[in-house]
């Protein structure tokens, strides 16, 4: 039991389960999944489908956070990617042409890779603090997205493009497969040694350099990957509504993504990262939104709940906070330990 509680997924899973349970009590048919025209329908499926862009962005963010970084520009990249794809499709002669769709998608993905590279270069080569470096693209990126869409909402009428975000494959939403694919790619960091390098750079950059780890390359690659994830999320989002809105697409995504990462158990101080934790974190956020919708409270109030979740999670992760509490139970023991670590270092 003790081991179970200590597992990093225990608390996130509990929260998710509690939320789902609440929904079940509130609306007994919450778990019902029906089959319609070969598609599955139901609240759970919706959560997965609507939550997939966030999951994608959060996966990318996890790796960035693991290197002690942060990427504030993901929301802007989401908007740019959707805008570029929709613009390219809307300019085409036949919006349903597969070649056009492919080119548009590749264009959007390619561009988001470049944007990720930009962030990565600023952080790893120019040595600018991540928050500041990515702030530039966060501000300018919104403008770029609006520039691409001309300030309008670009709508496309392409069944093939719509398939990415709202089609279904083997009765399940196609977006779920996209998420799984990206998650698998991200999990490759565990199969290769990249994950080890990411964690070691995030935990102790100096020692990593002395151990011969190419810290710059590691940092560069996580920002590029994060850009890629945000780009794909942008495609899902714009395809789901068959339109691109430079102004509002992906708004607050950076914050939700960071929240998902933190709920998932990855510390903002870098080091250990938990991809599955992040996915559960993102699902918690999406379920929360759905729940609040369902009980008829204005959805904007989710923000209040999010505020308390952020604070609670950070307080739990804060050493000083834990120390303040621990001191009540085991007096003097903890401070003494602190002192010795300070002394030895």
């Amino acid at each position: 039991m003790g081991r179970l509680v200590k597992h990093h997924l225990f608390w996130p899973l509990c929260v998710l389960a509690a939320l789902l349970l609440f929904n079940l009590c509130y609306s007994p048919d919450f778990f019902t999944i029906t089959m319609h025209d070969g598609h599955l329908y139901g609240s759970l499926i919706d959560i997965l489908n609507f939550g997939s862009p966030l999951i994608l962005v959060a996966i990318g963010m996890t790796l960035v956070v693991a290197t002690k970084g942060i990427d504030l520009s993901v929301g802007s990249i989401v908007a740019i990617s959707g805008a570029v794809a929709c613009l390219s499709i809307s300019k085409g002669p036949d919006q349903n042409s597969l070649v056009l769709i492919l080119i548009s998608v590749l264009l959007a993905v390619g561009l988001s890779l470049v944007l990720g590279l930009w962030n990565g270069l600023l952080v790893s080569v120019a040595g600018i603090q991540p928050i500041i470096a990515t702030l530039i693209l966060m501000v300018a990126g919104r403008g770029i997205a609006q520039l691409v869409t001309g300030g309008q909402i670009i709508t496309v009428t392409s069944a093939k493009y719509a398939y990415i975000g709202s089609g279904s494959l083997a009765t399940l939403p196609f977006s779920i497969f996209v998420v799984i694919l990206v998650l698998l790619i991200a999990l490759l960091t565990r199969r290769t040694a990249l994950g080890l390098f990411i964690e070691s750079v995030g935990c102790n950059p100096t020692a990593s350099l002395m151990a011969g780890v190419r810290a710059k390359w590691v940092i560069l690659s996580v920002y590029i990957f994060c850009g890629l994830c945000a780009g794909i999320a942008g495609l899902l989002l714009s395809s789901n509504v068959s339109s691109a809105d430079g102004n509002n697409a992906g708004l607050w995504y950076e914050l939700d993504a960071i929240l998902a990462v933190v709920i998932g158990g990855t510390s903002l101080n870098g080091g250990r990262y938990y991809l599955t934790g992040t996915v559960i974190g993102a699902l918690i956020i999406q379920t929360l939104t759905t729940t609040i919708y369902m009980i008829g409270v204005p959805p904007e109030i989710t923000l209040v709940v999010k505020a308390f979740v952020v604070l609670a999670v950070c307080l739990i992760q804060s050493d000083s906070f834990r120390a303040a509490f621990a001191a009540r139970w085991k007096t003097r023991h903890y401070p003494a330990e602190k002192e010795i670590t300070r002394h030895v270092s």
């Binding site: 290769t192 040694a193 080890l196 935990c203 102790n204 002395m210 011969g212 080091g271």
Partner: peptide, 29 residues
């Protein structure tokens, strides 16, 4: 502390780190 150990990683990971860095990211042990 500052130039040697990677505190949050396990003993095993700390042992193989340099060898792995020598191999590169894609030739995982």
């Amino acid at each position: 502390k500052t130039e040697g150990i990677i505190g949050d990683l396990t003993v095993r990971e700390n042992i193989i780190l340099v060898l792995q860095a020598k191999y590169g990211a894609f030739k995982a042990i």
